[in-house]
Design a binder for these strands. Structure first.
Length: 481
DNA sequence: TTTTGAGTTGTTCGA
DNA sequence: GTCGAACAACTCAAA
């Protein structure tokens, strides 16, 4: 007797390990039919950016392969999830759908649409939580309201005695796949039409196996120094797990327990372990905020920022996007992003502060650029990060906290190696001038082959003047209140 | 209800 | 060169 058939609807959970939807389908005695539906229409305005689509393509290649290794085929479809899943139901004998929740506003709507599309069919739908340590509604303040400040959120999370343990990869029963149409991965058109992705290929290997390797190598070589190295873009000190977490190629529960276990066996790792776990909890906090305040993707959380006098100078935004601001640490970050689809977190803060405060370009413009260029573009994290930088978020940087790109460069890239790597036209400059080439004596510039305003731009704005302009701009929204 | 203490990531200025 | 204070006032969270 054939087992009943269940659709396992893959979304941003492109893994077999610690995947409750998959495990429960198998445990429930179903034969599984793995499906991925590419749904730009459901995603709407926050349709995955170009770098994310590149990643997604390769992540799907990896998932197809792992499923193939177990004798399964990933069915690919393109269109609205509700409609495509309905079609598959009609084409097969599937009785049940298993999936893991997503929490972006569009994704919640998508789940509602799927549920209502299938409501009259008698199909059973099971949704699970697996992309966070805790569902986004579980951590609340004592009166049940959502947190708006990180630290109490963090403390509350730590007070929960047990963080669930990941579930092992299920043994997948042999498949007898029904005859069912599936489109070719290339037909999803996720890859760029002209190939600009060489830098991404050189920097990353998407997929569940690569995620596991990345975690292991981080634990082995970086975790012990994490607290000190995490702010240093010139060192290899951070986990680089963000894209894997975003696409669900590794689960946060897996990361959480692996880090804890690793630290347990090695005394003295406590501070670094804690500071890494804290970053993981920032991700939780970002989803908590996005869930409870879904409009913050586009609208400042603090209402008075509606009146902020943003500059509409297109040339400023363009220079920033091109990595031609004349501030080496800013340009290095932007070029690392353009080249690799990723930017070190410290540098994200520096370039964001520069765009928003020195150039007075709106955080929404910065967020959109990151959205298109980051392989780890994540609606919750991106929104939190930019609102924080602009000072308009729930738990934002105070208005007077304006990063000085020269000081930040000297402090966190002391040898200038990070700039040397991403702004090669400055490579010949001694460390002393690396973050402020316009201060360098002519003879040093000549020796390094640099012509300011020629081979490398002069500063787009004077930072100390820009800082004063920003402070005045912040004054205006204070008075208006 | 009121009170109290605190809030990721910084910079500048003047002593 | 180093150090502490000022940069605001507000809102949040818990007692």
């Amino acid at each position: 007797m054939r087992k009943p058939l269940a659709i396992v609807w893959f979304r941003n959970d492109l893994r077999l390990a610690d995947n409750p939807a998959l495990s429960r389908a198998v445990k429930g005695g179903f034969e599984i039919l793995p499906v991925y539906v590419h749904s730009p229409e459901d995603e709407g305005q926050w349709f995955a950016g170009a770098a994310s689509r590149w990643w997604l393509h390769h992540s799907l290649v990896a998932l197809e392969q792992s499923l193939k290794d177990t004798g399964h085929r990933l069915v690919l479809r393109k269109g609205r999830a509700g409609i495509e899943l309905m079609r598959i139901i009609q084409e097969t004998s599937a009785t049940t759908i298993f999936f893991n929740h997503r929490y972006e506003p569009w994704a919640r709507e998508q789940e509602n649409n799927v549920a209502s599309a299938l409501s009259k069919t008698g199909i059973t739908i099971f949704g699970f939580d697996s992309s966070l340590l805790f569902p986004p509604t579980q951590i609340t303040s004592s009166d049940g309201s959502p947190y708006k400040v990180f630290t109490p959120f963090w403390r509350k999370l730590l007070s929960i005695p047990e963080v669930n343990h990941p579930i092992a990869t299920p043994h997948l029963p042999p498949a007898h796949p029904p005859h069912l149409s599936s489109i070719n991965l290339n037909a999803l058109e996720l890859l760029p039409t002209f190939d600009w992705a060489a830098g991404l290929r050189a920097s990353w290997q998407p997929g569940e196996n690569a995620a596991t390797r990345r975690l292991k190598s981080f634990l082995k070589s970086c975790l012990s120094d994490y607290q000190d190295s995490r702010d240093r873009p010139d060192l290899d000190g951070v986990s680089r797990l963000s894209p894997y977490l975003h696409f669900g190629e590794i689960s946060p529960l897996t990361v959480w327990h692996s880090v804890k276990q690793h630290a347990q066996n090695k005394p003295g790792l406590d501070a670094s372990c804690k500071s890494y776990l804290k970053e993981l909890v920032w991700r939780e906090f970002a989803y908590h905020l996005l869930y409870h305040f879904p409009k913050t993707t586009d609208v400042p959380m603090r209402a008075e920022f509606d009146r902020f006098p943003w500059s509409s100078k297109a040339s400023f935004l363009k220079a920033w996007q091109a990595g031609n601001t004349g501030y080496p640490i800013v340009d290095a970050g932007i070029r690392q992003l353009w080249n690799t689809g990723w930017m070190h977190n410290r540098v994200r803060m520096i370039v964001a502060s520069f765009l928003v405060k020195d150039l007075l370009v709106s955080w929404q413009d910065g967020a959109k650029w990151f959205w298109d260029t980051l392989v780890d573009a994540d609606l919750a994290n991106n929104t939190l990060g930019w609102q924080w930088s602009a000072g308009c978020g729930a738990d934002a940087a105070p208005y007077f906290r304006i990063f000085n790109p020269v000081l930040q460069g000297k402090k966190f890239d002391p040898s200038g190696d990070y700039v040397r790597r991403w702004v090669p036209e400055l490579a010949g400059l001694p460390a002393k001038w690396m973050h402020c080439p316009w201060m360098a004596p002519q003879v040093e510039l000549a020796r390094a082959g640099i012509k300011l305003g020629g081979s490398y731009p002069l500063p787009l704005v004077d930072h100390s003047e820009a800082r004063l302009r920003a402070l005045i701009a912040f004054e205006t929204i204070k008075r208006a209140r």
